[in-house]
Structures are given as structure tokens and as C-alpha cells.
Simulated assay, not measured.
Amino acid sequence: MNFAFTDDQLLFRDAVAEFFANECPPEKVRWSWNDEVGRDASIWAALAEMGVIGLTVPEAFGGMGMNEIDLLPILTEAGRYAYPAPLVETVAVVAPLLAESAPAAIAEKWLPGIADGSVIATVQLDGQPFVNDMHIANLLIAQRGDQLFAIPAEHVRSTPQISVDGARRLFSVEWDEADAELIVSGDAALRAADRAFDRGAAATAAQLIGLSEQMIAMTVAYVSDRKQFGVPIGSFQAVKHHLADAELKVSFARPAVWAAAYGLANSSADVDREVSMAKCFASDAAEVVARKALQTHGAIGYTTEHDLHFWLKRSWALASSWGDAAWHRRRVAHLLLDA
């Protein structure tokens, strides 16, 4: 059995990586911190044109009908370039949730717009205090107990919240059930919410892999140029050990994320455990890589003048999103010991 990505998947990933390299350089990430909206609509539209935004939308609604195995390499590239937009929420979570669980009228209302990029969706499941990118969203999918609702953005009252990552816009939200459409209720809603959570956690883990790989690359470049005692500091054994520790963590986390993608795409019986292992490993890896990168750069790496701080703060924010490493360890222990 071949567990490698196909040539088509790798070509798609490489095309997206090239696009982000051109359209989302560090200057664009810096702009997203300072701009009032912080989102470039032309990038989202171009990604929709490429098929990225509609990747998980069924073909019947104008999408590509692909799955998590196709999506996670692309999300890794989004993490590598610290792209500030709700790809996880719209593409990884909301689109498949609507496709699988929504009545036909709701699916027909929203999925074509997601596929063509005209609809941006975000999500709030039970236990999530804030909503990402509500200020640009057209649709909020929200859970209340054993019910899932679709709420048009004009019926959502939102309040901005502070985030460690200035490019990641968070909001507390309020809405009335009278303005919402019921997607699903009862046990079916709880199952749909659990699956949505798993998709969000796995997608975030993929972004953390990309963030970690980029922080290692930035640090290797820095220690190759920075000199002490007449030689690059990267030649010092202690610095080599820091980078080796960082790469080791990412190397162990990466296949766990791939396994989670495979489990989600194929409805594995152990998908909860696979996703939690992926998110735990990816969060741990990002924490170690961020610490090693900052220690190797020194204080300059934390200043707002240096690009590294964008990746540091994004990794800290995402490591605690969709369950932090400690939460997912407890979940794995529960799944194993109570099985």
C-alpha cells in the first residue's frame, strides 16, 4: 500500500506554495497586523479561482469534492506563509459540515458561495469562547448543546477581543435563535460537532507544521549569516543541537498529522485518537521550535521589527486553539483507558 501523496496532490500543493510566496510575503503579514480589516480580499478570490476555497465542497455545489488528504498539504503551506484568513473554519470545518449534515435548502443556500469564494464562513462549537474572523464572515455556524445552527452574519452581534497574534482577529458573539436556521439536532448534531472539532484540530495541526518548518528555515538562515568570533554561529555545536532538537520534534509530528488526515478522509474508527495525537504532537513541536528559534535569534527575534515574531505569535495562538497539547493528551488517555 502506498501512503505517499499523489503527484497531483503535490503539484497542487506546490502551486499554492508558489502563490503564497508571491502574494503573502512577510510584508503582507505585517500589513495584516496594522490594517483595520487585516484581510486582502483579492488573495481569497484568487485562492477560490485556484479551487482551494471550494476544495471540500461537493462537485454538485461547484466545488472540487476533495478530502482532508488533499487539503492538509495546502494548509501546511498556509501555515508556512502565516496566511491570515479563515481557511480552517471555511474550508476544513464548515464546508464539509454543511455537505454532510445540513438540509438541502441550507446546503444549496451556502455551499455554492463557499465554492466560488463569495461566502466566508466561521464557526463556534461548544467550549470555544471566541470566533475567528467574524468581521469578514458572511456565515456563522454555531453549536448550542445538541443543536447546530447557521446564522447569517447580519444577525450576529460581535465584539472584538485581544489576541496575541495581531493578524488573527477574534470576536465574542451573540445571536438569537429566531434569526438562525437549524442545521441538525440531537445525537446527529453532537456527532457532527465532534467531527467538525476533529477537522478543525487536524487542520490547525497542519498549519502548525508549516509554521514550524518556516521558523526552522528562518533560524537556519539567521545562524548562517550571524557571526561571532569570526565564524557563523551556526557552526557552534550548541546552536546545532538547538536546531536538531527542533527538527526532531517536527519530524515526529508530521506523520501524525498525515495519519489524522487519512483517518478523517476514510472515517477511521480511531479518528478521535489520531486527531488528538496529531494536534498534541504538532502543538508540542511548534512550542519547541518557537523556543529554539527565539533563543537562537536572541532578543531581536521578539521585536516587532523582525519578521520572526509573526510566526512565533501565530504558533502560540494556534497551539492553544482547537484544544491545546494537554487537553489532547487527556483525550487520548480517556479514549485508551475507557475503551
Rank of each mutant, 00 (worst) to 15 (best):
Ala238Glu: 14
Ala203Gln: 02
Ala167Cys: 08
Glu154Thr: 13
Leu337Arg: 15
Arg80Met: 06
Gly38Tyr: 01
Gly117Met: 00
Ser42Gln: 06
Ala269Phe: 10
Val94Phe: 03
Pro96His: 04
Leu208Arg: 01
Gly166Val: 00
Val131Tyr: 02
Gly127Ser: 12
Pro129Trp: 05
Ala260Trp: 05
Ser172His: 13
Asp70Met: 05
Val88Ala: 06
Ala17Ile: 00
Asn132Gly: 09
Asp270Ile: 09
Asp198His: 15
Ile120Val: 13
Ala293Cys: 09
Ala196Arg: 02
Ala203Thr: 05
Ala105Gly: 11
Ala299Val: 07
Ala21Val: 04
Thr56Pro: 06
Ser101Asn: 06
Asn22Lys: 15
Asn266Ser: 13
Asp70Gly: 08
Leu335Asn: 07
Ala78Leu: 10
Pro84Gly: 09
Ala180Pro: 00
Ile151Trp: 03
Phe229Ile: 10
Ala104Cys: 08
Phe19Asn: 14
Glu287His: 04
Arg30Thr: 06
Phe310Tyr: 09
Leu55Met: 10
Ala217Glu: 14
Asp179Glu: 12
Ala150Cys: 00
Leu87Thr: 09
Ala260Asp: 07
Leu11Cys: 13
Arg13Met: 09
Tyr83Leu: 11
Ile53Glu: 04
Val250Leu: 01
Thr76Met: 10
Tyr81Ile: 05
Leu125Arg: 10
Ala153Met: 05
Gly166Leu: 06
Asn138Cys: 09
Val16Ile: 11
Gly323Asn: 04
Leu182Gly: 03
Asp116Val: 00
Glu274Cys: 10
Glu213Val: 06
Trp33Val: 03
Ala167Ser: 14
Val119Ser: 00
Val131Gln: 02
Ile43Asn: 12
Val29Glu: 03
Phe19Lys: 12
Gly127Asp: 12
Arg291Asp: 09
Val257Cys: 06
Ile141Tyr: 01
His155Ser: 08
Ala201Leu: 08
Leu211Ser: 02
Phe61Trp: 10
Phe171Val: 09
Ile141Thr: 05
His328Cys: 03
Ala188Val: 13
Ala246Gln: 02
Pro152Lys: 10
Ala238Met: 09
Leu139His: 02
